[in-house]
Design a protein around this nucleic acid. Structure first.
Lengths: 229, 229
DNA sequence: CCAAAAGTGTTTCACGTACACCCATGC
DNA sequence: GCATGGGTGTACGTGAAACACTTTTGG
């Protein structure tokens, strides 16, 4: 069924920059394109926005369809509207960035994605469209944001050691942090709580596991507290 | 000439939240709509994105067309995609926010704007569409951004007194600041330079005029300096 | 001479930063 | 017993915040 308009219209898509963290690096989730254009290239998961769904719903849907990822932390990043960013026709894309805990989510290619994989953000493959620009923008945003909002926890399992948390910040901020100062600061915040569980199956002294108490954070936040790291 | 597509497409618009500062308040520039829907209502200036122009170009164009404002500081804010935000059909809008020096720019209604006016941000009239939400988002962004980026200068004339600058921050941040600490801090930054001109025609001791040296700021910024106020 | 705003220093306190050693556990 | 990471306290310096009076100018 065709749809006709008086003036030409740009197509509207969403793209998702999904970050994950493994023991070594900050990673980004990419798909191998199964359709034209750029067949066989790596690209950000994404696709067309349906006429009756919100932008965020479209981002969630595309993510699930192409990578089988479930509900994740998702935030709008920026809208890219260069006139020739898609060789076929004018396409404007609303980019989202997402943070997930890699080990909790098995990814699997589907629909028009031929493959899926995690790639080091510092060293990604050649990307389709202007996705390299989008990735760079997302990475900068993450670096800036992580210092002023407690979103890093999204990259960790629900219970984590302080070492893991520090490693996360060191990886994203690309600098080392002092262990004692880091621990003191994090614990002083009050919303990173000790559980009474310990790390299991490690070949050295087991560390305490901690948990991010989001309710407590919200409460503090409302009464003027400013997160900063 | 009709344009036909296989799937229905959302229309794409841009809207501009233009902030200005007068002696009293933070103001926002609104237009009185001359066309349906919401004829006679106040709204943000904006309109449809042409098929061969970038989003930012569209924002600049609409601003000039509707309010006769020339080139201004413009930055992408957020993209609003609620399904029913426009009663006619699905319209996704990319919102921009702009900062201008009110006294340097005479505004004048044109094209489909019946009127133009500056309104106190704290107390705006009822707005068309979801523009109240967009305005609130822009205001929050401005409040956050002004502390970490030297964008406030866009709201002032090229030469300004430290009192004006302090007043600007007090207005946007909605709190008072200590005069001596403020002056010390601003001058310590190094890129707010004394000119050898003085205020004219004031009924009291004339103040020195200062100037924002953007080049100097960029240089400092690149070598790791972080603006903060 | 009065009103209005310009301009100027010092003290105090909190917080960021730098830094090194002993402890617990698994192999 | 050794390798690996867990866990802890103190001293120092910088920078933020609080605070009040004298000077200049125009009317």
């Amino acid at each position: 069924m065709p749809h006709t308009y008086k003036y030409p219209r740009a197509a509207l898509t969403v793209d998702c920059v999904v970050f994950g963290l493994d023991d070594e690096d900050l990673k980004v989730l990419l798909i191998e394109r199964g359709g034209e254009p750029f067949v066989g290239s790596w690209a950000l998961p994404g696709g067309f926005v349906e006429i009756d769904e919100t932008l965020e719903a479209a981002a969630q849907r595309e993510l699930t369809e192409e990578t089988s990822l479930g509900k994740v932390f998702l935030e709008q990043l920026y809208t890219f509207g260069q006139v020739d960013r898609d060789p076929r026709e004018r396409v404007v894309t609303v980019a989202y960035f997402a943070l997930v805990n890699i080990r909790d989510h098995r990814v699997r290619a589907a629909t028009d994605a031929r493959g899926v994989g995690w790639f080091a953000v510092a060293n990604p493959p050649k990307l389709a469209f202007d996705h390299a620009t989008i990735l760079k923008t997302a990475h900068q945003r993450l670096k800036g944001k992580v210092r002023y909002q407690p979103i890093g926890f999204e990259l960790l399992p629900p219970k984590f050691t302080l070492r893991q948390l520090q490693h996360l910040y060191e990886t994203i901020l690309e600098r080392t942090l002092d262990k004692r100062n880091f621990r003191r600061k994090v614990l002083a915040m009050g919303f990173v709580e000790e559980t009474n569980e310990m790390q299991q199956d490690v070949a050295h002294r087991a560390a305490k596991l901690f948990r991010f108490n989001e309710k407590k954070y919200r409460r503090l936040s409302k009464s003027g507290y400013l997160f900063e790291l």
